[in-house]
Structure formats: structure tokens, C-alpha cells
Design a protein around this nucleic acid. Structure first.
Lengths: 226, 226
DNA sequence: AGCAGTTTCGTACAAAGTACGATACGTTGT
DNA sequence: ACAACGTATCGTACTTTGTACGAAACTGCT
């Protein structure tokens, strides 16, 4: 049921998910849907929780940076496969069991890493803001792969006076169009910066731990996908 | 025209913004609207750009951290006043002039700060992901002020087995419910961490500049709103 | 067979976007 | 003054949406 709803949404976007289209996907008539759910809102709540259930949970046992990186990558991946989920998150306010379970696992990982309650709240807000915001921007990109970046930008620039946005043009022509730029590659940079910053907030990291990890040198180019 | 559309959306959400409600706000009949715009999509594109125009632009002249902080605070403020704008950003893919102008100003500030083209792209993706993601989470909060946090959490917990989410409960009871927790206060913490991390990526920051700014100590509590 | 609970569906209505064409209004040339 | 024309408004009506209401079909059990 929810699976079918997710499939319809994946195929035709949120606007394509109607009671009628869902019924057709299920091989039934529209009003039959209403025996199983109270209304469309319940469907929306359901598919959001279904999406959350697809995100890999971090383990509190492993290295916290590795675990949080893994769940961040998984979350981004899931949100990329279900773009419509991002805008739904804003309007749905009653979290489902999978959503709560997910939150619990992340908090557990942060606590096991040694963060205080206060710092856990800070870290969680920061990390999830980044993940969701990145997914939001990725979903807003008018292109799919790294192939048509230039085309889209060109069509945009044609409509306006390119001279009015010199720095935007410089960045586009001087970097985005060079080689095969993929916005998705930006994800790791920001996530690493955030995790490094959070490491500094750990109260009791031993000296050996700190030394075993070389200081990040963001000045060195080409370190996005080592 | 766009102003009226924004007002209607502010009052009744995106769902409340219909051609008919907009016409009523304007003191006209529904079909009169169609003389001025091609369709509802054009209205949506228009109000998104209108929202962007309300965000304060950073100046390339001032201190880049101060400027970016100011524009981040302004962006968050604007997105808080117009919650519906966040989900619109995902679907609208043709940026308006105010949007492009905004992007240009931010890029200019980063470039003036000394960031390379590559690092500017990284920094911009990171900062905006954080801002949008934070706004998205803020919009998803089921409460308005810091007063009803406990109430909402309680009603959620009642529906499920509280024992199933021990860490979530610990964080809620041990921190969120203590004092008057305000999620909005988390914003500064993350933004500062990000800006500090980006500072480390500046290639040519002079020694004096670095020394004039004390090293951040995230371990010290209560430094969110100095 | 008969009955109760479960599941499906046919009909119908309200609200949404908007196509189409008619109407009214302001300006201009004569 | 008056006709003509571009600008702006609106009335009607069609389509698509969610869903209320009640009838119909099906299922399992005695």
C-alpha cells in the first residue's frame, strides 16, 4: 500500500500522487483506498515514515564519525531517490515509528561518542540541517546528471543580462563548466568539515586519538573524493 | 500583486493560496488575475523571487564572517516568516533576478575574502545547505514558540512506547524540557562552527588576523547567544 | 443456506485551475 | 462628438482533485 504510493510519487512526483492514480496502481477503484486509510494526510504521513525507514541506522558501537558518515550518505541517497519527501517533511508534523527510531539511533551514536546532552542537541541540529539542506538544493537543481549543467546555466543566462552577475558568471565559467563538475561531490566536503568541527567539541578525546588523525588541510585541492 | 500573493500564503499557507483567494485579496474576480500572469506557476516563481529579494545582501567590503552571518540571520528570518517558501524552492527551477543577484553577492563576498573558485563553491554549498536545512527543520516543528515543546512531545510519546526510544527520551527529558529550550538558538552554534571551519581553508590569512580571534571552545556551555 | 463482518465500489458534491469569449474602460484620431 | 482600438475585467463552464454517503460484493463461520 505505502510501497505503491511511494512508487507513484517516484514516478510522477507529489502532484502525480492522487487517490485515483494510487488506486489504479493498486488495481482498484478510488474509493476502495478509503477503507484502508482515513484520508490522504494519513498516506502522506505513512510514506514519509516509509522513507525514513529506508535510511541506514548508525551503530552506537562503531567509530562515531564513520557511522554518522554512513547514515548521512544513506540519507542523502534516499532523499535523492525520493525528491518529493523533502517538501513533505516540512508539512507533516506527526513523526512515525521509523522516524523516531531513526532519531533515537543517531542520538545514541552521539552520546556513545561522548557528547554531552547539550552538545548532542547542537550536533544533531547541525548535521541534519546540513543533510536536509543539501538534499533540498540537490532536488532544486534543474538537471539530473553532470552532463547538462552548462546547458541549463546557459539558458538561464540568456534570459538575463550576464554582466549583471559578474561573480556568478565567473564561478560558473571558471569552475562549474570546467571538467565535469558534479554538485553531489560537494556533500563530502561539508560533512567532513562539520564532523571535524564537532570533534573539537568532544570533552574527553584522548591525545592518541587526536594525533592518529592528521589535521585537515582544506587548502589542498582535489581532496573531495579520495 | 506578488505582495498580495505573499500575504495570502503567509496567512493560509501554500494550500491557502488559490487563484480565487488571491483574487479576493485583490478585490477582483478570479479570472481577472489571468490578465497579469500566465498561470499559477508564474505566480509561484514570482513569490519565490520576492522572498529572495527580502534577504539582506552581504557586502564584499566588510569582514566576510560578519557579512555572511548577517545574511544568514536574515535568510533564516525571512524563511521563518514565509515557511511555505522552503518547499517551493524545491519545485521551482527557474531563478528570478533577485535570486541571481543574491547568489552573486554571496559569491562576491566569498571571493573577496580570499577563497579560491573551488573553495567558494564548496563554502557556498555548505553554508546554504545549512541555512535551508535549518529553516526546513524549523518549519517542521509542530509548535511555534518555546512554550509548548513539552506538550507536543508528550502527545507524541503517548502514541508510542516511550521505552522504545530511550536516547530520544533522555535527550528530551534531560535537555529539551529543561529551562526554556528554543530550537532557534541552535542556529548560531552550527553557523559559527561552519564559518570557523571555512576560515581554516583560507589560503592567505595573516597571522595577526588569526590571533585576534580567540580559538573557539565548544566545550564551554552557554555560549550560544553571547 | 444464512448471517455478520470485511472490503469494494458507484454516484455525487465541493473546491481547484483555467480555456473561451464577452464586456467595460481609457485613449486617440478625426 | 464619435468611432476605433488596446487594456483590463469578468461570467460561464469544463476538468481534476479529495472525499462523504450508502449500496453492493465478498469472506468465513455456523
Amino acid at each position: 500500500m505505502l510501497r505503491a504510493a511511494v512508487e507513484v510519487a517516484d514516478a510522477g512526483g507529489l502532484a502525480g500522487l492522487t487517490i485515483r492514480s494510487l488506486a489504479q496502481e493498486l488495481g482498484a477503484k478510488p474509493m476502495s483506498v478509503y477503507y484502508h486509510v482515513a484520508g490522504k494526510d494519513e498516506i502522506l504521513d505513512g510514506i514519509i515514515d516509509h522513507v525514513f525507514s529506508q535510511i541506514e541506522l548508525p551503530s552506537a558501537d562503531g567509530d562515531w564519525r564513520t557511522e554518522l558518515r554512513r547514515r548521512a550518505a544513506s540519507a542523502r541517497d534516499v532523499l535523492r531517490r525520493h525528491r518529493w519527501a523533502i517538501s513533505l517533511m516540512e508539512s507533516r508534523t506527526s513523526p512515525g515509528p521509523a522516524t523516531l527510531r531513526h532519531h533515537d539511533a543517531v542520538i545514541a551514536t552521539l552520546r556513545a561518542a561522548g557528547f554531552s546532552l547539550e552538545m548532542t542537541a547542537h550536533a544533531y541540529a547541525l548535521i541534519d540541517s546540513y543533510i536536509y539542506g543539501f538534499a533540498l538544493q540537490e532536488a532544486a537543481l534543474p538537471f539530473e546528471g553532470p552532463d547538462t549543467v552548462a546547458d541549463v546555466a546557459e539558458s538561464i543566462m540568456e534570459q538575463f543580462d550576464a554582466d549583471a552577475y559578474p561573480h556568478l558568471v565567473e564561478l560558473a565559467t571558471g569552475y562549474y563548466f570546467k571538467t565535469s563538475y558534479d554538485f553531489g561531490d560537494e556533500f563530502d566536503f561539508g560533512l567532513n568539515l562539520i564532523l571535524d568541527g564537532l570533534s573539537a567539541a568532544l570533552p574527553a578525546e584522548s591525545a592518541e586519538d587526536r594525533e592518529s588523525r592528521p589535521a585537515p588541510d582544506y587548502r589542498r585541492p582535489g581532496t573531495l573524493n579520495p
